[in-house]
Amino acid sequence: MYRLILPLIFFLLGAGFLISTFNLPKARLGDPYGPIYFPAILGVLLVVLSIIYFIEEWKQRGDKFPELELLLKGRTPFLLISTLVISLIYAFLFERVGFLISTIFFLGGLLFLINGRKKWMTNIIVAVSFSVITWYSFAVLLKVSLP
């Protein structure tokens, strides 16, 4: 039955999008509904597609849903969530403490997470050297304005 979740999500997305298009401001010049037609058509399209998709999935509702199991197996969910958390912290720190320091911690954190604690030496060397090299080539050679 998990199969049916996805078409339902698409249905809600399409319906929600369609409703929000009605709240769009109207154009002050030309056709007032000009900016609304296209998104509204897309909303309807997604709703229709989600219904077809639902019917397709309904036919195989008894089948296994191996994709979901794959995702929940082993430490995959843990890795995913921690990556998201570390990335968000990175986004928060990026302009506050500067590129170099935040990147070293971000990369270091990811490496410890994925590559494991046992290889701490490699992790640190890679994190520091890679951050410095990218910082040098972007900020100094290419003159990108990095914080």
């Binding site: 990556t83 990335s87 990175y90 990026f94 990147t103 971000f106 990369l107 990811l110 490496l111 994925i114 590559n115 494991g116 490699t122 890679v126 890679f130 951050s131 990218t134 972007f138 990108v144 990095l146």
Partner: peptide, 17 residues
């Protein structure tokens, strides 16, 4: 396990530029 973190960092920098 080393390559993927590096790709992530490059993705973030690329986005920033």
């Amino acid at each position: 396990k080393i390559l993927y973190p590096l790709i992530l960092v490059l993705a973030f920098i690329g986005t920033y530029t």
